[in-house]
Design a protein around this nucleic acid. Structure first.
Lengths: 144, 144
DNA sequence: GTTAGTGCAAACCATTTGCAGAACG
DNA sequence: CGTTCTGCAAATGGTTTGCACTAAC
């Protein structure tokens, strides 16, 4: 969590106020390797802003989403997850060990492009998080 | 909701009891075109079993899932959805009008196959529900 | 008759909302 | 200073759990 003139100016140019809470939440998302749940964002951002409340986290995440700062996706057990939007990469989450792996955007686009052509739909790429078994966990015995 | 000797025998062979509630919920899922939320399952199954409770629906869906009768997937706004497992087809849900369209399994397999090859993962096809805009809604003005 | 399954009520947890005070510009 | 944003507290809604009763076998 270092200084962040980029975020300051981005928020400012939107006519929005630059608050410690928004900066802290942006920092948390920037430093996270993959997706974070609202609860995880709250736990980490509270370290930077002690008086922070979950309410503010939810409102800020929704604010950041509507302004294009973060992407939202559906994750396990039907809960929401957020990630910074600066680079649009896709994730594969391992169902067993939880590890997240980035997917080449080009491949994902190509895969969905075929499905779009077949169906006529415009597929909403951002809202999909793929999950499966990573190579390591495939090699391990299926027990546990 | 007709007679269902298939479900009776399937349940029976597992050593599980054949109850009106389980049969009703299986009928509801069988007659549904796509995914259903627990709440939707409850509303429909209650018509067949008046005294049914949401509790039983949740427990039964979890029971059916662990025994391979239904698939579970993450849907919009981070909620759960279920569908009968007998035929593995994939769905595309329109974000605006909610219409569900079946996708040719072969195409989906091919799309994911590429991603699996690139990543080394085994992708869990069943837990993904794709969403986007259907052709009709794409043609309509973006307002509202 | 046993045991699994259900209904009821209450608990639980993530998320949302109303409102008054604090902070940004 | 005016407006936006936040904190607090309470409400909400979907989901889970404990326990006693019912029903399947």
């Amino acid at each position: 969590m270092t200084a962040s003139p980029e975020y300051r100016s981005q928020l400012h140019s939107l006519g929005c106020r630059v608050t410690r809470q928004r900066l802290a939440i942006l920092h948390v998302l920037r430093d996270a390797p993959g997706h974070l749940s609202p609860g995880q964002v709250f736990a980490r951002a509270r370290r930077e802003v002690p008086g922070l409340t979950p309410t503010t986290v939810y409102r800020t995440l929704e604010f950041l989403r509507t302004h294009g700062f973060v992407w939202q996706s559906s994750r396990d057990r039907g809960h929401l997850a957020y990630e910074l939007a600066h680079d649009r990469h896709h994730h594969l989450t391992c169902l067993r060990c939880g590890r997240e792996t980035a997917l080449p955007t080009a491949e994902v686009e190509r895969a969905y492009g075929r499905l779009e052509a077949v169906s006529g739909y415009t597929i909403d790429h951002e809202h999909v998080t793929l999950s499966g078994l990573c190579p390591k966990c495939q090699a391990e015995p299926p027990g546990v």
